[in-house]
């Protein structure tokens, strides 16, 4: 992990988390979900955050747009310290941070087009203009023929495409993906990952991906961070983290997997660490297993 100089925000870092902690207090007691996380995400990269369930991944990504307010620490996005803003200022900054979810979270009583218009209308864009932009975005995500369909008439993959178009409507600099493919079948996952990679290339948008699926990380991430029990274990390139000779990451991620999948995963990680395997080939092997 790169050293973080206090107070200095390097220009290429679009998201900076400093000493971020989150403690949930309930009647049953306290749960330390995140502990003193320091993390910088660079402009234009696809950054993965991996870990088993309960590791704090979701809490971490929700802290980036302050859906979850950290107990301690600072969140800086695009040079703005979000943790220091008033509610109204924060809402304004959130227009520049898109987010998609595992459960899509579309408006069920609105059409695909109306869903994509929503973020534009709340920022005061006139309806006609909003519809034009929403229509273009739905073309971009491959849903030209589903503009007037309601979410109940769409498949999971199509709903996630609407959600992606909606997240992109306000031209955000950052796109947060909270387990965005976990509810989808392998083929649909593949097409959504392709779309995310395409969006990253075309718009230069920084994408943060939370996932427990190894293949998502292998497929699209430039760099990865691994979380365990609220602690940041390591940050680095996909090869560095997944191909760690100690295989600790693999060990942790393969617990509970069927034998054949575990073997396949171990082989892929080994090949990655040896530099034999490149991103695309890794994915190909992953599919054939």
């Amino acid at each position: 992990m790169r050293p973080l100089r206090k107070g200095v925000i390097m220009s290429e870092d679009i998201i900076v988390l400093q000493q971020l902690s989150k403690c949930f207090v309930s009647e049953q007691g306290q749960v330390q979900a995140l502990q003193a996380i320091n993390l910088s995400i660079r402009k234009g990269e696809i950054f993965g955050i991996i870990g088993r369930s309960g590791a704090g991944k979701s809490t971490l990504v929700r802290c980036i747009n302050l859906l979850e307010r950290p107990s301690e620490g600072r969140v800086i996005v695009d040079g703005q310290e979000l943790t220091a803003l008033s509610p109204a200022q924060l809402r304004k900054q959130r227009h520049g941070i898109g987010m998609i979810f595992q459960g899509f979270h579309l408006l069920m009583q609105k059409t695909a087009l109306q869903n994509v218009c929503f973020p534009l209308l709340i920022t005061g864009v006139p309806r006609g203009e909003a519809e034009k932009r929403a229509s273009a975005l739905l073309d971009e995500v491959g849903l030209s023929d589903k503009k007037n369909a309601y979410p109940a008439q769409l498949s999971g993959g199509q709903m996630q495409r609407v959600a992606i178009a909606r997240a992109l409507a306000t031209n955000p600099k950052v796109l947060l993906c909270d387990e965005a493919t976990s509810a989808l079948d392998p083929e649909t996952t593949q097409s959504i990952l392709d779309l995310l990679r395409e969006i990253n290339r075309r718009h230069g948008i920084t994408i943060v991906v939370i996932t427990h699926e190894m293949r998502v990380v292998e497929e699209i991430c430039h760099r990865v961070a691994e979380l365990k029990d609220g602690l940041l274990l390591r940050v680095g390139s996909v090869e560095e983290v997944l191909g760690d000779p100690s295989h600790q990451t693999v060990e942790r991620l393969t617990i509970g997997l069927p034998q054949d999948e575990e073997t396949a995963l171990r082989v892929r990680c080994y090949l990655l660490s040896e530099g034999v395997l490149f991103e695309e080939e890794g994915a190909a092997i992953g599919r054939s297993v």
């Binding site: 809402r91 959130r94 941070i97 898109g98 459960g103 979270h105 929503f118 209308l121 709340i122």
Partner: peptide
């Protein structure tokens, strides 16, 4: 679904906009 309201918050919708539009 609480997620829909959360999504609106993530997009920067104000409480009044959430009431009226969501």
């Amino acid at each position: 679904d609480a997620g829909v309201i959360e999504a609106a918050q993530a997009m920067g919708a104000s409480p009044l906009q959430i009431v009226l539009r969501v």
